[in-house]
Design a protein around this nucleic acid. Structure first.
Lengths: 157, 157
DNA sequence: TGGAAATAGTACCAATTTGATGCGAATAGT
DNA sequence: ACTATTCGCATCAAATTGGTACTATTTCCA
């Protein structure tokens, strides 16, 4: 249905916490903080770690930290770490060969769509998503920003 | 996995045919032309019709035609007709209330993502997808902020 | 040195979604 | 009447996803 999986949903919450927090945070710790299933959070953080988005320190007192500043992590990075390579349509995988027709009239255009979509995702950085920056006004969002409530733990900005 | 369903895939092929063809084309006719399952094509065209994207004429010699010029049909229109309202994440449905935390730090940002994604989809017109025009450069929605950082381990651009 | 806390890596299951098909009814041309 | 077509369901198998479980490994601390 062209929606981000719940993994990405959770993943963004987790990353947002790591972004605001200060020390390496453990999976269980964050899971409790947002009341989401602990094993799920653990799995997601594992995937994010092996995707190079967060760094992990094992052992007691271990946990996860953002591997790069949020301004250097794109939505595409997150999605690819959690859902595999993002391919809008199957056509975009096997080198443009359409299974239905040799000169399928859409494979080529679809690849242009895919490319543009990828740019969209790769250009959307976490810091922008998480509220800081907000470079150009994303018009039509007037609700008061949600800044304070999530910063009770550490201090980052 | 954040990809367009096969329905949309087929749908774009069908629409491309209607775009290039002249007379109302029947579902079976187009299906044969591209060697894709006839009932599938029929279903998709039905959905496109009830979504107002194509107009249908019943009876013998009937068929489907684009309801508007391709330049007035957006990718969002097609996706919504075939997959229902596009909501990137579940959060975006029920009015911003997050199920995990009252002041969930991501629901608000996610809605900004969703809005921007919707703009991306709604601004992508079929004629552009199908090859004609390609008016503005492929960076319409990404602007300058698409610095390279996230592309270092992806495929070749 | 041993125990506790944490990540790593799979493997697995249930529930939902998707791809695909089928069938009867309605409509329109010949 | 006959035929070709859309329409609106309803059904079904297969793939995907959300979620859990288990074991191994690493690290801190007493």
């Amino acid at each position: 249905m062209l929606k981000l999986s719940k993994k990405v949903d959770y993943g963004l919450v987790l990353l947002s916490d790591l972004h605001n927090g200060v020390a390496p945070a453990s999976a269980r710790e964050i899971a409790e903080r947002y009341q989401l299933p602990a094993p799920m959070a653990a799995n997601i953080l594992k995937a994010l770690a092996s995707g190079g988005i967060v760094t992990s320190t094992r052992g007691a007192l271990g946990g996860y930290t953002l591997a790069r500043p949020a301004s250097a992590i794109s939505l595409a990075d997150v999605v690819e770490a959690l859902e595999g390579p993002l391919s809008l349509l199957d056509c975009t995988d096997h080198g443009g060969g359409c299974e239905h027709q040799p000169g399928c009239p859409t494979t080529h255009p679809i690849q242009r769509v895919h490319k543009r979509f990828r740019l969209f995702m790769a250009g959307y950085m976490l810091d922008e998503i998480f509220g800081r920056a907000l470079p150009r006004a994303d018009f039509a969002f007037v609700t008061k920003t949600v800044t304070a409530p999530t910063l009770q733990r550490g201090e980052a900005p």
